[in-house]
Amino acid sequence: MQPLIAPKRHQNNPSARRDPAPSRGSYRLQRFLLNPWVQVFLRLGVPILIITLPFAVYFSDTARRTAAMTFVQEMKHTIEERPEYQVTLMSIDGASPELTDGVRRALALELPISSFHIDLAALRAQIENLDAVAHADLRINTGILQVSISERAPALVWRLQDGLQLLDATGRRLALLRARTDRMDLPLIAGEGANLAAQEALRLLMVAGPLSPRLRGLVRVGARRWDMVLDRGQRILLPQNDPENALKRLIALDQAQSLLARDVPVIDLRITARPVLQLSPQALEVLRRKNDNLSVGTKL
């Protein structure tokens, strides 16, 4: 049986099909799209644009931008203020009570504070700026800011016109000293620029071991050389170069002939080849008389 409704002609007839040829426009478009730079743009530029464009449009409004900023700030704040991140205590180890106070004063932290707001490197620099601190270790340990400090050891007392200061072995200023009697264990130095030659002073003091019962201190003269001051106002003028050896020789002389026990207020060693002794007037008188007697004696 043949169907009553005939099939439509153009479905069967291949010549009536749509022409497969592209239109001039689509041909040109395809050739344009095949350009290498267009392909790169389509592969990279368009996805980037699609991703960034909604954000750009959304944030082009100032109110939205500020709202977003506020939201971010609030989120940040909430996280920072969580108790897990709070630092409530600061413990300072390895420092004297005065230094501990000084560190607390210097840092001036208002506890409790969020650990996000603590800049450990800056705090450490601030602490190490203090004169008495050699170096400091800082760490945050479950709500406690631990500061381990190693103090500088005082080695010398430096007398200035307006007071006394403690110096460490390198000549670095540590602290003010109220009275010399507070640190009688430390040797005394004085004079302008004495702190710069602190190491030389310490070496001299070590050499001067046998004299230490009589030693009063060292005086820097003209920021250039040392004078060693003993009790009874006795003074040893040391040379600028190689003062240790000069001092060693003097000590050897003293041990052999007990030079320093005599009435010689000034021993001038500034020129190594020609040490000069300055006698006190009384001693000079005695010496002159003795010489006179001798000369009389010889005359006789």
């Binding site: 497969p20 040829a21 592209p22 001039r24 689509s26 041909y27 050739r31 095949l34 350009n35």
Partner: peptide, 14 residues
């Protein structure tokens, strides 16, 4: 145009 377009499409090259 038909053949050139198809061949270019296959080659992915202009």
């Amino acid at each position: 145009r038909t053949v050139v377009q198809a061949a270019q499409k296959m080659a992915n090259l202009k």
